[in-house]
Amino acid sequence: MKKVLFTTLVVFALSAQAEFMSKEHNWNNTPDQYKAAVKAAKAEQKLARSLGFEWRDIGKFLKTANKKYKAGDVKGALKWVEKAKTQAILGQRQAKDQANAGPRF
């Protein structure tokens, strides 16, 4: 009986903890996820660069992300990495849009 009671209590405690946890909590804010995100962002940056349309601040964003990561703020770091990746993708889109750029006179 004691064992059943103890198990029930543990299960209840764990589920309550999960319930009260912020909805914004991302179970994936792990160092592994950060490293994967940086890799993906750098790949997009490289592609934008090869097209000649890399934006100026992508490198700065990745540096800021690295600082945050080293300070233990993985969530904050991921935000900067995402920003860098978005800019790299926008640069690639710009390259497509400007493929036929020329004079208008």
Partner: peptide
Amino acid sequence: GKKEFYAKRGQLNLSCANCHI
């Protein structure tokens, strides 16, 4: 070179031509 001059680039989406033409 011509394309480099007329293509908009960067976050501000501006080309050399936007300012200087």
